[in-house]
Design a binder for these strands. Structure first.
Length: 589
RNA sequence: GGAGCCGUGGUGUAGUUGGUUAACACGUCGGCCUGUCACGCCGAAGAUCGCGAGUUCGAGUCUCGUCGGUUCCGCCA
């Protein structure tokens, strides 16, 4: 055995080993040089332990070596575990009851002074942290988060493996499809002028695996989308991709909620009550103004249109007349909002597209509101009753088109919920949103497009709406929402050839046109297709929530910036003329 | 594609109404120090204030542009 090879990990050293000779390896986290004795906090991935470098034990030569130690040097130490002297226990670290008296020190690697201190990395400019990502990754926070990610994947795999799912890989070099997100494109050398695309998801392949008879498939799959980024969106990200045969919606949802419950239990020790509540898309929009409601707090939206249709107040009467709605929400205890605060809310509502925001502060002796004088006593009472307004509350009302009013109020609700501290810590509120619209009208292309994708099955009772009223057709689709974040979504797929044809027609193209685009896929369906459906979860988002982070960059070992650059490897980058020549690619300009 | 915020020694920040020596903490380097644990004490080095124009007698500070990071809208399932 090599003389420097470790016998224990730093974070594991405890009173149990007092008196034992051990060898530790790790990085110098901090050094405290007191002259005739040097203390070093030694760090490896398991944690920290204090080592003591004493010239009387080490001898002059070894102590001279110890004096050279600096932050981030990689060392090996032989020594004895000692219980710390009376009154010198450090309660801040797990190994604080003990220390290691070093008898032999080996410097395995010296280190330049790092561009930032590892234990302060959280405050450093993101660009610098990303350039030196391997240093940031040394921080406890990121080490813990990356480990949590591993545990999450492990729990997912063990659950699905136990349920008879097969992990099957699908290709990364595939064919570009015009629908959906922008593709990342890879040129082909062997076929000049032709290109692969990187998958936005393994959607078609997993369905083909069902046709192939694997019945239960999963994959921790890397996906690529060339779209603008956000805190929760990276150009490459990871999905927990699942597909099942001979199942209906219930079975997919039941299996998947059991999986998520298993993960939460294994990784966070959180017990979730099942069944997970379900909301229809319509109800989610009605009550929360969002297709991914955060149900950790109330402040639900309420429709008061019915009470205001005959109002003298033009805004309400006109809204009701033109098929719009008046919706509101109750900010509990918000009556003491200042005029300035309320004006800010109004401005925000307007910037989100609303016409305006009306408000009623319910004070002890009166209703403070710029529009109260335009409303009848009955109308004021109805508004208060519907919104369950009590003295001290602030009622917000908005009039206009249903979608816009709901969405804007939904966003105000979320913002107020955060600002007023209504969202409890360490809560995991799961929610299924079901019965999604099947089709959405796209103003740009002046046609219906698939809300989910073109192979999503409509609800049985809505099939005939495909021709009569496509906008009202609902899908056998489901999204799982955790704390207001869309964790994943899926659907039961169309397996009936005739229905698929009607779907394509509703989308505005003929079977011939569909064949041109998805020929191989549709042909496969003609060779015996089991009923099937599936779902895909955003692994990065899931881990982000479990780790209590605000960005998925924090849960990806080597993430990219908001402009899709990797600052460490400096990608993307130009390639050589020779490479371009081989690919028969000319750059413009 | 659009909007907001940020950019000052290695790091994090301060910098007044535009006024001449750019401040503080951490880190780094040197000295002292035998029980520290955010060690302490003494001393030192280290910045053309992201970059480029402009306004001005004078710009870290004001204006415009640009680059980078970030957040949101559009986009994205």
């Amino acid at each position: 055995m090599t003389e420097w090879k470790r016998t224990h990990h730093c974070g594991d050293v405890s009173k149990e080993y007092v008196g034992q000779a051990i060898i530790l390896n790790g990085w110098v986290n901090r050094r405290r040089d007191l002259g005739q004795v040097i203390f070093v906090d030694l760090r490896d991935r398991s944690g920290l332990v204090q080592i003591v470098l004493d010239p009387e034990v080490l001898g002059p030569e070894q102590f001279a070596l110890a004096e050279r130690l600096r932050s981030e040097y990689v060392i090996s130490v032989q020594g004895t575990v000692l219980e710390r002297p009376e009154g010198q226990v450090n309660k801040k670290i797990a190994t604080g009851e003990v220390e290691v008296q070093v008898s032999k020190l080996i410097i395995l690697s010296e280190a330049k002074t790092p561009p930032f201190q590892i234990h302060q990395a959280a405050d450093v400019d993101e660009a610098l942290r990303l350039k030196y990502r391997y240093l940031h990754l040394r921080s406890k926070e990121l080490q813990d988060t990356i480990a949590l990610r591993h545990q999450t994947v492990d729990a997912v795999r063990s659950y699905l493996n136990g349920q008879g799912f097969l992990d099957i890989e699908t290709p990364l070099l595939i064919r570009s499809t015009p629908e959906g997100a922008r593709d990342y494109i890879v040129p082909s050398r062997v076929h000049p002028g032709e290109f692969y695309a990187l998958p936005q998801s393994p959607q078609l392949f997993k369905q083909l695996l069902m046709i192939a008879g694997f019945e239960r498939y999963y994959q921790i799959a890397r996906c690529f989308r060339d779209e603008d980024l956000r805190a929760d969106r990276q150009p490459e990200f990871t999905q927990i991709d699942v597909e099942m045969s001979f199942v209906d919606r219930e079975e997919v949802m039941n299996t998947m909620e059991a999986m998520i419950v298993h993960v939460l239990s294994e990784v966070k020790g959180v017990k979730v009550e099942t069944p997970i509540p379900r909301l229809s898309y319509q109800e989610a929009m009605d009550r929360f103004g969002s297709d991914k409601p955060d149900t950790r707090f109330g402040m639900e939206l309420c429709d008061v249109t019915a009470h205001l249709g005959g109002s003298e107040f033009r805004v309400f009467a006109d809204t009701a007349k033109t098929g719009g709605v008046v919706k509101g929400l109750n900010v509990r205890g918000g009556a003491d909002f200042t005029r300035r605060q309320i004006d800010q809310l109004s401005e925000q509502a307007v910037s989100m597209g609303a016409k305006g925001l009306m408000w009623f502060a319910l004070e002890a002796d009166k209703v403070r509101s710029p529009i109260a004088k335009f409303l009848s006593e009955e109308e004021l009472i109805a508004i208060q009753r519907e919104l369950a307004g009590e003295v001290g509350d602030l009622l917000l009302l908005m009039a206009g088109e249903y979608d816009l009013v709901s969405e804007v109020l939904g966003r105000l609700r979320l913002q107020l919920g955060k600002e007023l501290g209504l969202i409890g810590e360490n809560r995991y509120n799961l929610l299924w949103v079901v019965d999604w619209p099947l089709l959405v009208y796209d103003e740009d292309s002046e046609r219906f497009v698939a809300a989910h994708h073109p192979f999503t099955a409509p609800l049985d009772e809505d099939i005939d709406l495909l021709e009569s009223d496509p906008a009202r057709a609902r899908a056998k689709a489901y999204d799982l929402v955790l704390n207001g974040v869309e964790l994943g979504g899926g659907s039961i797929r169309i397996t009936d050839r005739n229905l698929q044809e009607r779907m394509f027609r509703a989308l505005g193209f003929t079977m011939e046109e569909a064949r041109a685009q998805f020929g191989y896929f549709l042909e496969a369906f003609e060779y015996g297709t089991p009923p099937h459906g599936g779902i895909a979860f955003g692994l990065d988002r899931l881990v982000m929530l479990l780790a209590n982070r605000n960005s998925i960059r924090d849960v990806i070992a080597f993430p990219k910036t908001v402009s899709a650059s990797d600052l460490m490897i400096e990608a993307p980058a130009q390639v050589s003329q020779q490479q371009l020549d081989e690919l028969k690619i000319n750059l413009r300009r």
